[in-house]
């Protein structure tokens, strides 16, 4: 290593990998994926991997991705909650890998929740579908 810049570069890169362990994670965005039996059966693992890959690709070190159990609405799985500090939580339903990638780019990066995937929209549609 020849310079302070190189040192700083290693610092930044490694910090992204281990930021999770810091006490003060700053303005942390949390993505919580439902990973109970119902979620996993519906493909939640691939969805979570998609969130992780997308966050890695974009070097989003303020995003933590974690998992939770069943919230009771198993028919909407795979589901995920996105918590942005200072905003209301947004619940996404019927996810797949592509949708996860869009949520990262549109909601987490650009700050616009993807309305069409949220529980209020999707859920209502699904209700209608069930009724028919």
């Amino acid at each position: 290593m020849k310079s302070l810049q190189e040192l700083e570069q290693i610092r930044q890169e490694t910090l992204q990998r281990i930021n999770l362990r810091r006490e003060d994670k700053g303005n942390e965005v949390r993505v919580v994926v439902g990973m109970a039996t119902c979620g996993i059966a519906a493909g939640a693992r691939n969805v979570m991997m998609a969130f992780m890959t997308e966050a890695s690709k974009r070097k989003l070190n303020h995003v933590t991705i974690s998992q939770t159990g069943c919230v009771g609405t198993c028919r909407f799985e795979p589901m995920a909650d996105v918590f942005v500090p200072g905003q209301e939580k947004v619940t996404y339903v019927n996810l797949n890998e592509k949708k996860a990638a869009r949520i990262v780019s549109e909601h987490i990066v650009n700050g616009n929740p993807v309305r069409e995937f949220t529980i209020t929209n999707q859920g209502v549609d699904a209700e209608k579908g069930d009724a028919q």
Partner: peptide, 10 residues
């Protein structure tokens, strides 16, 4: 570079 979602520290 890979970001892991969880770290287990032993």
């Amino acid at each position: 570079m890979i970001i892991y979602r969880s770290h287990i520290l032993v």
